[in-house]
Amino acid sequence: MKKVILLVSFAFAAFMSHAADNETSLKNDNKDQQVKSVKMLESKTDDQQISRLCSVTLKGVVNAGVFSVEISCTNSAESCEQATKLSASCLTAALKTVKDIIY
């Protein structure tokens, strides 16, 4: 049982590391599951021209039965690619900490 859980954890951690390094993988392979929400935000600049920001939220949960840690990373950038990259980087860092605690 523990082996199965650890195996899943390993696979997930490896996947997250890969996701951080490879944007193509994030976009094409697991778009629906990984990118929790993407929305365009409007923001006004000094010269009143409207620029649009893309906001991406990634969420991860470590469940240990009677307690769980929920991590959510939201990033907004001019391009969705950049926002995704930032959110993936944020979540990877957080989960790396969890991984460091585990191993």
């Binding site: 920001l53 906001s55 009677v66 307690f67 769980s68 840690v69 929920e70 991590i71 959510s72 990373c73 939201t74 990033n75 907004s76 950038a77 001019e78 950049q82 926002a83 930032l86 944020c90 957080a94």
Partner: peptide
């Protein structure tokens, strides 16, 4: 990234 905005939320749920 100077124009980027970010927000991270961490929640601890304990029984």
């Amino acid at each position: 990234c100077l124009t980027c905005e970010n927000k991270s939320v961490i929640k601890l749920h304990t029984w």
